[in-house]
Design a protein around this nucleic acid. Structure first.
Lengths: 337, 337
DNA sequence: TTGAAAGCGCTACCAT
DNA sequence: ATGGTAGCGCTTTCAA
């Protein structure tokens, strides 16, 4: 039996429910929130529930948290760059784990906002916790958030920020692992693809640095190779490949690696004989190309872990911000290196 | 010069700003909101701004919208399934366009919530508009949202729902285009991959239906092929491929297509001679495999368009919900078909 | 067991 | 040009 609404003039409030049930607003609140400190008679409870259902009453979250003085909203800025399957799985896990802990997880679309301006916008929502992926939040931003009542600020990315917890994903470990692998296999002139696309610097720069760090003090050279994510750019890069004399390339991730490897093969560069190729992220598709793509498998922390960190920190905001290094990077050796 | 906060006991309110500036809360409100109806003297304005800056004052969005009786929040449930680059670009575009129209876009992590339960949770936030991707919102849900003040509900996906605007992405067009293409190229025994993964039915079922629709009344047959997204499953499917006697397969999307095509090649099935393969989404990576993957290029509406639809509907909620069919599907013929 | 009322932070009237 | 103040919807004392 479908309820036909009788053209509701306006949004029903708890006062409307109270009126319809013939009780006070206080009683409505008690019943609807199962307040344990107060006993309400069974008939009254039923009348209240009935009235609420009939009116289609839905409590007003803003009013509630205004009154309570705090919310259970966990805010994450929505990443401005395209995210891979790894990261999006992490987000979903996190949302689900926080949801089970009774937090409301919200991704805020911070489009054109930058730095402190963005932090201010987030602060207006008075979230109890803010999880910031990538870089772009400064100490000022943390201060703004904390001052507006955020009990926890966690950065999830390459950097640490004063005053905030950090789930530090040190992407230099990815480059490091790739470079070590290539060096051990006898490669000495190593190219590193750096995506030309905006918004990826937070990852590409550390990955490049990791390569440099791994090869410092050795006889190997590192060459930076900017590359846009399209076939034309890859073809251009491949065209004068031999002139560069590189015997290996770490290609930022599997997608760029596949793009470049394919372009290299098109111009007759033998992979891995002439040039070894290593990607990162261990995508399913990397196994399908021939030669099968060597890659750096990345282990992200579980969303559950971060959810627990957040919950603990919310309950004890006095505790010192902890920095946890979380990012396993291990080479999966296949045929392209 | 960095501001050192003097251990703020609690979150500063407009009353604190007023006190510090030596004016009333009303004046603070006027100044900070540039209220044009009221003239405030320049010295006063400066004092207020100064005080706000010094305290690190950030307005309380919930209080503001409680008072205003409405918000400019546009809420989208965060999709529960992994989204591809196409869709995530659409979301980013949309967020940015709505941001320019001065809406606050928020993705709500509706984890374990289903149907009307989810709609209730969204309604608690009193968004001015709700954009629901995928399926899963019923007419009841629309009613709940509208009753709690949502002026616009738009479904973005395969289905239409009574009372809601619809950006109808009819995925059957994708299957239809693929099937027509295969039929025209002389294929008659056509397999259709249906992902085994949960949450994709909203797309996979219409795509399959589209194939069926395209081939109704012809001499072609359609065979449903469940497939999990991993190499083992693909290998098992490929193992007894010849026994099925299929001469073509539409593989849901490029990723499944690449997976299957690769497995087919591993067992010696010639593509496209023996079996043609068509994917969908026109991913960059599909061009890299050999043979190059034929695919269905999908044209999503621009985020700007949807943003404008939303804005128009918010301003005139009386207007009848419009259903707009938006999903261009055109075959890109490469070498695998 | 239930009701009256204060007050969370903010803005928009109406005074002055 | 500025201030006083009511009230948005809700919860939670305190009283009855």
């Amino acid at each position: 039996m479908v309820q036909i609404p009788k053209t509701p003039r306006s949004v029903p409030t708890s006062a409307d429910v109270a009126r319809l049930a013939g009780v006070s607003r206080a009683t409505v609140s008690y019943v609807l929130n199962n307040t344990s400190a107060v006993r309400i008679s069974e008939p009254t409870r039923r009348r209240v529930h009935e009235a609420a259902r009939e009116l289609g009453y839905v409590p007003h979250a803003a009013a509630r948290s205004l009154r309570a003085g705090h919310s259970r909203m966990v805010l994450m800025p929505a990443p401005a760059f395209p995210v891979g399957p790894l990261y999006s799985r992490f987000i979903r896990e996190l949302q689900s784990a926080l949801g089970r802990l009774d937090y409301t997880v919200v991704q805020y679309g911070s489009v054109g906002l930058h730095g402190d301006e963005a932090a201010r916008a987030w602060a207006e929502l008075r979230p109890v916790a803010v999880l910031v992926p990538g870089s772009g939040l400064g100490p000022q931003g943390v201060t703004v958030l904390k001052r507006s009542g955020a009990r926890v600020v966690v950065t999830v990315g390459p950097e640490c920020v004063e005053g905030a917890h950090a789930l530090q994903m040190d992407h230099s470990a990815v480059g490091f692992a790739a470079a070590r692998h290539l060096y051990e296999r006898g490669r000495r002139r190593i190219g590193v693809v750096v995506p030309a696309e905006d918004g990826l610097e937070a990852f590409s720069v550390p990955r490049l640095d990791g390569v440099r760090r791994a090869l410092t003090g050795t006889d190997a050279t590192v060459t930076e190779l900017p590359l846009g994510y399209d076939e034309g750019a890859a073809a251009r890069l491949a065209a004068d490949w031999r002139a560069r004399g590189l015997d290996a390339v770490f290609a930022y991730n599997d997608e760029y690696a596949m793009l470049l490897m394919s372009a290299l093969q098109d111009v007759g560069v033998a992979v891995p004989e002439e040039t070894a190729v290593v990607g990162a992220d261990d995508l399913m598709l990397g196994r399908l190309l021939r030669p099968r793509l060597s890659t750096v498998h990345i282990e992200l922390p579980s969303g559950r872990d971060l959810a627990e960190l957040v919950d603990r920190a919310v309950r004890d905001p006095a505790a010192a911000p902890e920095t946890r290094k979380v990012l396993g990077a291990s080479v999966v050796h296949r045929d392209s290196s």
